[in-house]
Design a protein around this nucleic acid. Structure first.
Lengths: 337, 337
DNA sequence: CTGAAAGCGCTTACAG
DNA sequence: CTGAAAGCGCTTACAG
C-alpha cells in the first residue's frame, strides 16, 4: 500500500503538502502540485478512507435502512427497489457510498451508524417490529436523515400523496357507476400510515359524492403481500358478497384477490372491479391488466437525496414533501349502469 | 464520543487492557474484565470501526458489485434481488456489513475496494460495459471473492446449471409433440455465458432425440428485458412463422413475446407454446401462467457466502459450483399431435 | 496479569 | 509557499 509518505519521499516535500495537493486545497506552486499529483498517479496511490474518516469524522458513507420483512419481496418491492436504486445513483454521483444499517447482535440502527461513522441516513423501510424509538437518537443528535415511507417527527419525509390516491380510486369507481365498494386495507401500525391515509381520502370521496362508506366492506390484511390479500378477501367474501368493486391498498394484495377470484369462479372485471396501488411490474401483464397507481419513485428518490445533501451542508429542510401518485388506467374496472 | 481511554480512566487500567477486555482476548482477572465491560456499557461505548480498520486492516466490509444496467429491473431482478437479499442476511449474521462497489470518477472496482478497505467481495452483476479485466486485480491480489453470474478465471463462481435447463426445456417441448422450436437468446458477450450454456443444452436435447435444430429459428435479443424480447420476436416472426413453440432465455423476454402475440392475434398457448427462464414473480399471474425455470437463489446465495467465509479464513475453494434450476410447469405449453 | 511505546494513514491548526 | 507537531481511536508486539 502506497501512502502519502511515499509520495512525500519521492517528491521531496512533506506529508501535509502532499495531503493538500491531493485534496486540491492550500497554496503551493503549480510545479509542486503537479509533481505531487503525477507521482501519486505513477505510484498508484489510493487514499485510505479509514484514516481519513478517523481524522475528519466524515466517512462519506450513507446508511440505508432497508429491512423489508413482511413484504415478501425483499429487494424486489415495486416501490422500494426503485427508490433504493435511484437513491444509490444520486448518492454515488455525489461521491458517497451506501452501506446497509442493520440491527444485529443487539445493536440498534443508531449504534450501527456510529460504529460505521456514517454521515447521514435514509430510512426506506425498517424492520416490521422496529419500534419508533429506534429513530429518535438520530433526531436528538441531529444526524442528517431522510425517510421515504415512515413519518417520524423531526425527520424529513419524502412520500407519496396517499390521501389523494385513495380519493381518486373511490372517485373513479363512483364515476364508473359503482357504489358498493370494498376497501382492502394494508396493515395499520405506528410505523407506516399509508393504508390509513388512503382510507381517509377514499372516505372523503364517498362523502363528496353524497355516498356513505359501508364499514362492513372494510377488511384489513396482516401483511402487504399476496397471501394476506387472498386471506383477507376470503374473510370479506364469506361475510358479504354485496359489493361490485374493491380497492386494494397494494397490487400484491390485489393479486391475492385475483387468485381467490380465479379459484372461485369470480370473473374480473365482470363480477368484480378492482384497483390496486404501487404499479407492480406484474400489473401490466396480469389478466385483466390491473388499474393502479404509480408512485413517482424517481422524483421521491431524487428529492430524498437532495434533502439529505442539504442537511449535509447545514441547510434546513422541510418536514414533509409529497408527490402525487399517477393513476394508471387499465382494464380491471367495469363500467356499470 | 466515548473512547477506550475514557473507559481506561474510569476503571483505572490502561487502554490496551480495555481493548483486550472488549475483544475478549488476552489474560486478566475476571474482576478487571467485568469492571471494564460494565463501565463500557455504562458510558455507552461504541467501537470506532475506522480506527480499528486502520490498525488491523480488517474492515468487516464486503463489497458488492451490483450494477444492473441493461436489465431494466434494477434491484427488482427476479434472481439478482433474491441473491442480494439472502447474501446480505448471511453476511450480516456473520458480523460483516455490505457496501456497494461502483466505478465512478474513473475509479475501478478494485480501486474502490482499496479505498474502503473491503475484506472480500461478491460479484452479482457488473456493469454491462464492464471489461473482464476489471476483476483480474482481485485475483492477482488474492482478495477473497465470489461470483454468482459471471464466470471469471480464478474466482469462485456459484451459478445455475444453465445447460441442463436448456436441455430440459427442449426435451419438454419435444415430449409435448413439438419439433419446430425457436430459441430466443439473451445477449451473448464475454461477461455472461447463461444464454450460450442454455443453447448448448437445448441443442443437445435435439440431437439426443434425433432432431436437428433449425438455425433459422434462432434469434438473439439485445438486452435481457421485455422490449428486447418484443423486438427480437418481431424479427423472428417476420422472417418465418414455421414454428409451434419458443424457448425464451428469460421470463422478461418471454413477456415481450406475449405482448407481441397479444397485439398480433397470436393465441397462447394454442398458436404458440412458450417456456421462459427465471421464474419472475410475474409469471404466476400472467395469462397463460408461464412455464419456466426457477433458480435456486437461496442455495446459491448461501453457498456464495460460505465460499467467501472460507476464503476469509484461508480455506481453499472450488472454482465453480452449480445448482440445477427447478422446472416450474404451468400453462404455457400445449400438447400437440 | 498489566502497561508503555509505537504505529496504522491522514489532516488540522500553527509557525516560519 | 512549506513543514514540524500533534492527534484521530484503536491494536500489536514487547517488557515487566
Amino acid at each position: 500500500m502506497v501512502t502519502i509518505y511515499d509520495i512525500a519521499k519521492a517528491t521531496g516535500v512533506s506529508a501535509p503538502t502532499v495531503s493538500k495537493a491531493l485534496n486540491g486545497i492550500g497554496t503551493m506552486t503549480e510545479a509542486t502540485r503537479n509533481k505531487i499529483l503525477e507521482t501519486a498517479k505513477q505510484l498508484g496511490y489510493e487514499p485510505n478512507m479509514s484514516a481519513r474518516t478517523l481524522t475528519t469524522k466524515k466517512s462519506h458513507l450513507i446508511g440505508v435502512v432497508y429491512d423489508d420483512t413482511g413484504m415478501s419481496r425483499g429487494f424486489g418491492h415495486p416501490l422500494f427497489s426503485v427508490l433504493l436504486n435511484r437513491f444509490r445513483e444520486q448518492i454515488e454521483q455525489a461521491g458517497y457510498d451506501i452501506i446497509f444499517l442493520s440491527r444485529h447482535f443487539g445493536m440498534s440502527y443508531f449504534a450501527h451508524s456510529k460504529f460505521r461513522s456514517i454521515d447521514g441516513l435514509i430510512i426506506i423501510t425498517p424492520d416490521n417490529d422496529c419500534p419508533y424509538e429506534e429513530f429518535l437518537p438520530f433526531v436528538d443528535h441531529k444526524v442528517p436523515c431522510v425517510s421515504t415511507n415512515t413519518i417520524i417527527k423531526g425527520i424529513c419525509t419524502v412520500i407519496t400523496e396517499n390521501e389523494s390516491g385513495g380519493y381518486k380510486a373511490a372517485e373513479y369507481f363512483i364515476k364508473k357507476g359503482h357504489t358498493k365498494i370494498a376497501f382492502l386495507s394494508g396493515p395499520r401500525n405506528n410505523i407506516s400510515f399509508a393504508a390509513e391515509e388512503r382510507l381517509k381520502g377514499f372516505k372523503k370521496a364517498f362523502s363528496d359524492y353524497g355516498l356513505s362508506f359501508d364499514e362492513n366492506l372494510f377488511e384489513e390484511c396482516d401483511f402487504w403481500h399476496v397471501n394476506a390479500g387472498y386471506e383477507a378477501f376470503k374473510r370479506l367474501y364469506s361475510r358479504t358478497k354485496d359489493f361490485t368493486a374493491i380497492f386494494a391498498c397494494s397490487d400484491l394484495m390485489a393479486y391475492g384477490v385475483m387468485q381467490f377470484a380465479e379459484e372461485n369462479g369470480i370473473s374480473l372485471p365482470d363480477d368484480l372491479s378492482i384497483i390496486g396501488f404501487d404499479d407492480d411490474s406484474i400489473s401490466e401483464f396480469s389478466k385483466p391488466h390491473l388499474t393502479t397507481f404509480r408512485h413517482d419513485a424517481v422524483k421521491i428518490a431524487d428529492m430524498a437525496a437532495e434533502m439529505l445533501f442539504q442537511q449535509l451542508t447545514d441547510i434546513p429542510v422541510p418536514e414533509i414533501i409529497r408527490f402525487p401518485a399517477e393513476f394508471i388506467e387499465r382494464d380491471s374496472v367495469k363500467l356499470i349502469k
